Simulated assay, not measured.
Amino acid sequence: MKYIICYDIKEDRIRSRIVKYLEDRAFRIQFSVFSCKCNNKEIKNIWQELLRITEDAKNPLLLIIPVCKACDSDILMHGKPLEEDRNVIIV
Rank of each mutant, 00 (worst) to 15 (best):
I46S: 03
N45W: 15
Y3D: 03
A70C: 15
L22T: 00
I14Q: 00
I14P: 02
N45R: 08
E83Q: 09
M77L: 11
A26E: 01
L62C: 00
C36Y: 02
K69A: 08
A70P: 01
R15Q: 03
K69T: 11
A26Q: 02
S73H: 06
I75Q: 07
V19I: 10
L62Q: 01
F27A: 01
I64H: 05
I29D: 03
I29V: 12
L63K: 15
V33H: 00
F27Q: 01
E11T: 08
N40V: 12
D74V: 03
Y3W: 11
M1Q: 04
N45Y: 13
L61A: 11
K58Q: 13
M77G: 15
S16V: 01
P60Y: 03
K20H: 07
L82E: 14
E49Q: 13
I4D: 12
R17H: 10
L82Y: 06
G79R: 07
V33E: 01
C71F: 11
L50N: 04
L76F: 06
D12L: 15
I9P: 09
Y21R: 00
L62W: 05
I18L: 13
D12S: 15
I64Q: 04
K69F: 06
S73Y: 03
P81N: 10
I75M: 07
A70H: 09
T54I: 08
V33C: 01
V88Y: 02
K37Q: 08
I5Y: 02
I90N: 11
I64R: 11
P60R: 04
R28K: 14
K69Y: 06
C68S: 14
V88K: 13
K80M: 05
K2N: 13
Y21Q: 00
E23K: 15
W47H: 11
Q30E: 10
I29M: 05
K41A: 09
I53Q: 09
N87H: 07
E83V: 02
E84R: 08
E84G: 12
K58V: 07
P60A: 14
L51C: 13
I53M: 04
R17K: 15
A26I: 00
E49S: 02
I46F: 08
N45G: 05
T54Q: 08
K41V: 08
V67H: 08
E55V: 07
K44A: 04
E49T: 03
N87W: 07
M77P: 04
S16H: 06
K44V: 14
V91G: 12
N87I: 10
D72N: 09
W47I: 08
K10T: 15
D24L: 15
L63E: 03
Q30H: 02
E84V: 15
D56T: 05
I9T: 07
P81I: 01
L76Y: 14
L63T: 10
